[in-house]
Design a protein around this nucleic acid. Structure first.
Lengths: 340, 340
DNA sequence: GGGAGTCATTGGAACGTTCCAACAACTGGG
DNA sequence: CCCAGTTGTTGGAACGTTCCAATGACTCCC
């Protein structure tokens, strides 16, 4: 006999405690009209047997899992893991458990990741920074309560929480202009999430300051390599900018590298601003001024929106916008007088 | 009527297709002795209704979830997320789905995270870098197939995969000694995972090279601040080392910063070696020589070990050790002749 | 032409819970 | 002293599947 251990069920506990399984169920759910005597007996029997409620059986009949699924676009992006912290903390607070998944920024994989949660019948789903297209999102929104985090939306079926990226770019431009910069370049995030708004916000802010003709935009892709390439292109064509605003921190770090290789000092010769204010920007060795997003709040808000649907049955869509701020560090300073 | 949508069940599909629910079940599980005619009818009915199998009901009766739970110590650590990639890729390959959890490096929370998986009756659990103590691990190992990743163990009940940290430190020391360094200092990882082995490995390697009396060790804690403080202490007491070996990349980055603040150039005046070879080390702006661990392989191996238990019923423990390697970048070079 | 064997299909039990209606044993008020 | 109400407890139906033994319809071979 290999001692094939079988996990005890509610029935085993009931037998050992000499009560019905219904009563065990009541005790496990902390019901209050149970006599102290029986409660003690049940709890002791459960402890002795090492009983652990079967969550599947539970939610199969109660039609409630107290689990919410979170599909994260990219677990390697420190921005997203901070949002996850907010989600997990809020979930804990409300008595839910968050389970994670990743789709590696590939729409098809992300959809399969979500499918896992749909089959598991989680109480709801949060999509964090995913690249799944709008049609698919509405399809999923019809099947389960759904919230989009770090992604703006106008869907009638789902909620969303995102940072006002247009405003974020404006803050960065204002900061640079106030330092005295005019020739400001922007390295975009390509087709990445929020990249379009960041670029539009940059152009609008420059225009508002009467600097539309000084603005330059080069394509990037939210990566270090994209930042390097962007700076190389900026330096090889026309007069060098006195400031570079990159669409995220990683691209900004690439820009730092390319500038230093070109013999330019930051912030002496060129100022650099990033976006996301990840812990990378905070490394003293990098020390990057960056547009800050309320990451943990974003996670909390996403979960709260979801629970409004799950617990209170709200069905009309809500779309939240969070305001960005600027974290000023050592990579920005007034331009040299002669280059202005 | 609010149109409270009810998710269709296998029974609804059966009715619409005009067959028994057993047959629908067979079709859904891709059984092969089903006539093409019925199969088509079932699939069409399922599609029309938007049927999606209920994973809970499924695994309740089949006693198999095809889901494995992964409790990650710290999602913000890029080392762990790479291991997760390996786990997820291997899971996909074998037809399993990996769900994640985090315990934020707090033993109690980590245990609760695992408890979630135990209640969900996942087919197995992987603990990635968790700080849960050995007694608790054995307790969990008695309840479910369990593998420890990025943590050595001698437990009789669970498997483990970890890098040979003793050897990793030796590689770093060998590299520095071959470059000509003698006064080599080590900044430890404090009470962090694997820190003890790394420090012991450093001391052993120095001794082997006859440099025991040149070795210096200062306490750190796997953080940037720890690295800064470590270097400050090294510089304020006795002759400065010509090389610093930090217990992880973040501490090494702190060391870089402190050295540059002290007016010392890397690698001209002092060489620096990190550990983990995370993408931080690869940033061209940082460009850190670092001890590389096989992260993705570690994840794959962890999942394979787990499935040997789940699918093949292995119960005797296996403990794997992966060999580290050195990724040489720009932070190491021969010492200046006069300082040797 | 009958028995053995294959093949496609089926109904009902089972999985481990919660839910609900029903019940027994009290308590208290008129 | 009876009836209504409360409190604690119970058995069985239900949740949505899989599993299994059983069934009927064929085919094949002697």
């Amino acid at each position: 006999m290999t001692g094939r251990r079988i996990t005890p069920t509610i029935k085993d506990v009931a037998e050992r405690a000499g009560v019905s399984k219904s009563l065990v169920s009541l005790v496990m759910r902390q019901a209050d009209n149970v006599s102290d005597e029986r409660r003690r007996a049940v709890l002791e029997a459960a402890r002795e047997l090492g009983y652990r409620p079967n969550a599947m059986a539970r939610s199969l009949v109660s039609q409630k899992s107290h689990v919410i699924g979170v599909t994260v676009s990219d677990l390697h992006n420190p921005f997203f893991t901070d949002v996850v912290d907010g989600i997990a903390a809020a979930a804990e607070e409300y008595g839910y458990r968050a389970l994670l998944n990743s789709g590696d920024r590939i729409a098809m994989r992300e959809e399969r990741a979500v499918e896992t949660f749909l089959q598991l019948r989680t109480d709801g789903v949060i999509l964090l920074g995913t690249v799944i297209d709008d049609a698919a999102i509405d399809r999923i929104g019809r099947e389960t309560p759904l919230v989009l985090a770090s992604r703006a939306s106008r869907s009638k079926l789902v909620d969303s929480v995102a940072t006002d990226d247009h405003a974020g770019s404006a803050i960065a431009v204002e900061h640079l202009v106030e330092l005295g910069h005019h020739r400001i370049a922007h390295i975009t995030g390509g087709s990445g999430a929020g990249a379009r708004s960041r670029t539009r916000g940059f152009l609008a802010a420059m225009k508002r300051r009467g600097l539309a003709d000084r603005a330059r935009v080069v394509e990037g892709d939210y990566t270090e390599a994209g930042g390097i390439e962007g700076v190389d292109r900026l330096l090889s064509e026309g007069p060098p900018p006195t400031a570079v605003f990159a669409a995220n921190d990683q691209a900004a770090i690439g820009a730092l590298r390319a500038l230093s290789e070109a013999g330019l000092h930051v912030p002496g010769d060129v100022s650099v601003v990033g976006y996301d204010d990840t812990y990378l920007a905070a490394f003293e060795h990098i020390n990057l001024t960056s547009v800050h997003q309320q990451r943990v709040s974003m996670g909390k808000a996403a979960l709260q929106l979801l629970l409004e649907r799950v617990d209170e049955g709200r069905t009309d869509p809500r779309h939240l916008t969070l305001q960005p701020a600027l974290t000023v560090r050592g990579s920005t300073a007034p331009p040299r007088p002669e280059t202005r």
